[in-house]
Structures are given as C-alpha cells and as structure tokens.
Amino acid sequence: MCADPSTLEGLNWWLCYLTTVKHMNLYTSVFTVLLLLAIVTPCILALGFGGAVAKRSALMPVRWVGMGYTSMVRGVPDIVFFMFVPIALDQVFEMIRHKVLCSDVTDPIWQGNDFVVCDIAKLPLNAAPQWQHDAYGFILAVIAFAIVFGAFAANVIDGALKAVPKGQLEAGEAVGMTKRQIFTRIHAPQMWRYALPGLSNLWMILLKATPLLFLLGIEDVVYWARELGGAKTSRFAYPHTDWRLGYFLALLVFYLFLTWISEKVFDRLKLRFGAGVAI
C-alpha cells in the first residue's frame, strides 16, 4: 500500500506516514531513553552511596576523594561535562590502545589539530558495523550521566545519613553491635527515608536531562521529533510543512507520562521506607 506515497490520501496517507522507517526510529528511540534510565540509575545510586561513604570516611585521603568528587562535579555545568567526559574517555581509551597495539608507530598522536591513532587502535574500529558505534557512544553516555548525577546523589545520601537520629545509633552501640553492624542494620536502612525527597528530585532532573544524549551523538526522541517535524520539501516521499509543534506536543505528553509514573512509584517507596516510623 505504501509503495507510492504520492497517490495516498487521508487515513492511508497517515498510516503509511506514521510507519516509515524514520518513524520506527522515533518509536525505538523511546526505548533508548528507557534503557539509559534503567542502566544509569543503579550506577548513580552506587556512585552516590560510595561518594557519601567516602566523604564520611575516617581516613583523610578517602575523605578528600569523596569531597573532591562531589564538589568538583557539582560545580561544572552539566553540558560542559557531557561534552568533555565522553571525548576525554574516548581519547584516553584510544591512546592506550594505540600504545599497546601499535607500539611500532612512531608518528605522534597529536599532529597539529588532529588526533591520530593507528587504524586498529580506533574504538570502535572504522569497519565496525554502526550498531557497535552506537553501543560505544551509549556506554560513554552512561558513564557521563553516572558521574554527574552520582555526585549529586552522594550529597543527598550524605545529608540523609546525617539526618538519622543519633539515639538510634547509640541504641545499637548499647546492645553491643559492631560499627559495621550499626551501619548496615540501622544507619543505612533508616537513611533512605531522608534521602527519598532529594533522590526523587534528582530523578526528575535526570528524566529531563536525557535529551542531552543528542550531544553525544545518540539519536533520542527529541532528536527524531525535531528531524521528523521539520518542513519537508517534495524531495521527500511525504512532503509536509513545519510540523514541529505537533511532534513536540507528543513529546510533552511522553515526558509528562514518565513524570506521572515516577511520582506514583515514589509515593509507594515513601510508604515502604516510612513503615513503622512514628511521625
């Protein structure tokens, strides 16, 4: 039916238009966003927890690492970080590979403006299929997101650990628990209740930051909405005027839906972590 779009009209035109490969790319990019969230959230919590524990460590160097991490990362604009981290990581990886795999090449890696490593040191290889390039970009994006949001999470969790009433910890000591037992059985479980409001804020910000993926060359929903919505001349199979407003409205609904679901989930978590607490 969709073989010759110029003969289509009305409903059929719409059916064919909304099922072009390009539109399929838009629909699958929704899963890219969800996949990123699913992978990056545990990483953020792990980094956040690690950062908070480091900040409270009794060892000075460890404390410095925790402090340095949270204050430095939080102080740099996100957008700068998202541009810097993936490029820097990529070049570091390629440099190491160049040193290991092409030790016989004597040309410098930096030649004027150019960053040149030997062909087999490229990551991914030039000849690699596009999905490998996409996956690699995605991994770099996950790392960048985890580092940035982990720093904020570390501060939230650090604050939450401080908010647990002293009496609770002292009670643990009184019954003869070790430091470790107090932390894992009393301090950490009670911390979540205080961390939740901050973490839910962070989650909402993360949701809205996902379009930054495009900066890293990953085609997310916002990229495809912009690309599909732009005016199309008769060069295209489905010419239309500027429809970005329509596409962006659909995006609005998508993000509002995500926010709505998130709030439901956080409400449940609040009940769960608050169970048995007298307010």
Binding site: P5, V21, K22, N25, F236
Partner: peptide, 8 residues
Amino acid sequence: NFINDAGQ
C-alpha cells in the same frame, strides 16, 4: 544531504 523516509 538529508535523511530520507527510510532513515538513510
């Protein structure tokens, strides 16, 4: 250069 409806 442009991306056609087949995404190419």
